[in-house]
C-alpha cells in the first residue's frame, strides 16, 4: 500500500512537474508576445534525449552524477507530504522532517557537482561555483523563514506545521517571513533574476555543459520533479498544505504562475549581485520577521 502511495506521489510529481514546465515555457512566451511550444514540449524533449543514439560520458563518476541528483529529487518528493490530512499521499514524511528536507534539497546538486567536476570541463565547474556561491546567500532567507515557521509550530514535523496553520496560514501570520522565503524560492526554482548558474553566453550552460543524451534527459526529468517538490514545500510551510489533490494543484499552480511572471520580467543578476541582494533584502526581511515572532 505504501509502495503504491509512493509510486503515485512520484507519478504526480513527474506529471505535474512536466506540465508546469511546459506551462512555464508557454506563459513566458506569452509575456514575450509569442505563442510558445505545446504544453508537452518539455516532456517530448526529455523523451527525445532518452532515445538519442549515443550519450557522451567521461567515466563512472560522470555517469553517477545525474543518478545521485535524480535520487535526491525523488527523496525530496517522497519526504514532503502532499496533503495535510488523511493517510494517502503522505509518503515517507513521518520518517523525516523539515530539517531533513532542507538538507536533502542540496544533496542532489552536490552529487551532480561531483559528476560535473569529473568531466574536467572548466565551464561546468564555473557554473557549480556560481551555484554554490549563490546558494550560500540563497539559503539564508529560506532558513530564517523555516526557523520562524518551526518555532511557531513548535516542531519540525510537516504534519504539525500544517496543523498549526489550520486557523491562519503562515503567509498572513508571518508576512515578512513569507516574503523572505518567496524571494529565496524564486532562486531555488532557477528563475530570473537568479539564473546566473547556467548562463549560456557566459559559462556555456554551466553545470549542464557536458551532459548529453540520457544524462540530460535524467537531469530534465529530475528538475521537473524537483520543482514540484519545491512548490510543495512552499505550500506546506506557508499556505497550510492542501486538503485534497484539487486544492494542491490550485495552490501549487498559483505559486508557480507567480514565480513565472516574476521570472519573465527581471533581468539576470550576476553572482555577486545576487548574493548581495539576497543578503540585503530578504535576509533583512527574515531577521525582522523573526524578531516580530
Amino acid at each position: 500500500m505504501l509502495l503504491l502511495d509512493l509510486l503515485l506521489m512520484l507519478l504526480i510529481a513527474y506529471g505535474f512537474g512536466f506540465l508546469y514546465y511546459g506551462l512555464y515555457r508557454n506563459l513566458s512566451a506569452r509575456v514575450h508576445g509569442r505563442f510558445g511550444p505545446s504544453l508537452a514540449q518539455s516532456f517530448s524533449d526529455s523523451i527525445k534525449l532518452f532515445v538519442k543514439e549515443e550519450s557522451t560520458t567521461f567515466g563512472w563518476m560522470f555517469y553517477l552524477g545525474p543518478v545521485i541528483m535524480a535520487s535526491g529529487a525523488v527523496l525530496n518528493v517522497l519526504f514532503i507530504p502532499f496533503l495535510n490530512q488523511g493517510e494517502s499521499l503522505q509518503g515517507l514524511s513521518s520518517y523525516g522532517n523539515l530539517i531533513v528536507v532542507l538538507y536533502l534539497m542540496v544533496l542532489g546538486p552536490l552529487g551532480n557537482a561531483l559528476g560535473v567536476g569529473s568531466s574536467g570541463n572548466p565551464f561546468g565547474v564555473m557554473g557549480v561555483t556560481r551555484g554554490l556561491t549563490r546558494l550560500l546567500a540563497l539559503e539564508l532567507p529560506f532558513y530564517l523563514a523555516a526557523i520562524g515557521v518551526m518555532i511557531d509550530a513548535g516542531s519540525a514535523d510537516f504534519g504539525i506545521i500544517m496543523q498549526a496553520q489550520s486557523t491562519q496560514s503562515n503567509m498572513f501570520a508571518h508576512p515578512l517571513l513569507f516574503a523572505a522565503a518567496f524571494i529565496s524560492f524564486l532562486g531555488f526554482m532557477g528563475k530570473s533574476p537568479f539564473d546566473v548558474v547556467g548562463a549560456p553566453q557566459e559559462v556555456y550552460s554551466g553545470p549542464a555543459t557536458e551532459f548529453s543524451g540520457k544524462f540530460l534527459a535524467l537531469l530534465m526529468s529530475q528538475s521537473a520533479m524537483f520543482s514540484f517538490a519545491k512548490l510543495l514545500l512552499m505550500v506546506n510551510l506557508f499556505w497550510g498544505g492542501a486538503d485534497h489533490l484539487g486544492e494542491l494543484v490550485a495552490k501549487t499552480f498559483v505559486l508557480f504562475v507567480a514565480a513565472t511572471f516574476i521570472g519573465s520580467v527581471y533581468a539576470r543578476f550576476s553572482t555577486v549581485q545576487s548574493v548581495e541582494f539576497l543578503i540585503r533584502i530578504p535576509t533583512l526581511l527574515g531577521i525582522v520577521g523573526l524578531a516580530l515572532l
Binding site: S38, D45, P200, Y204, S205, T209, F211, S212
Partner: peptide, 11 residues
Amino acid sequence: LGVVGVATPRQ
C-alpha cells in the same frame, strides 16, 4: 515547432 537554442554541442 519545438526548436530551442542550446549553447553546447553535447546537447
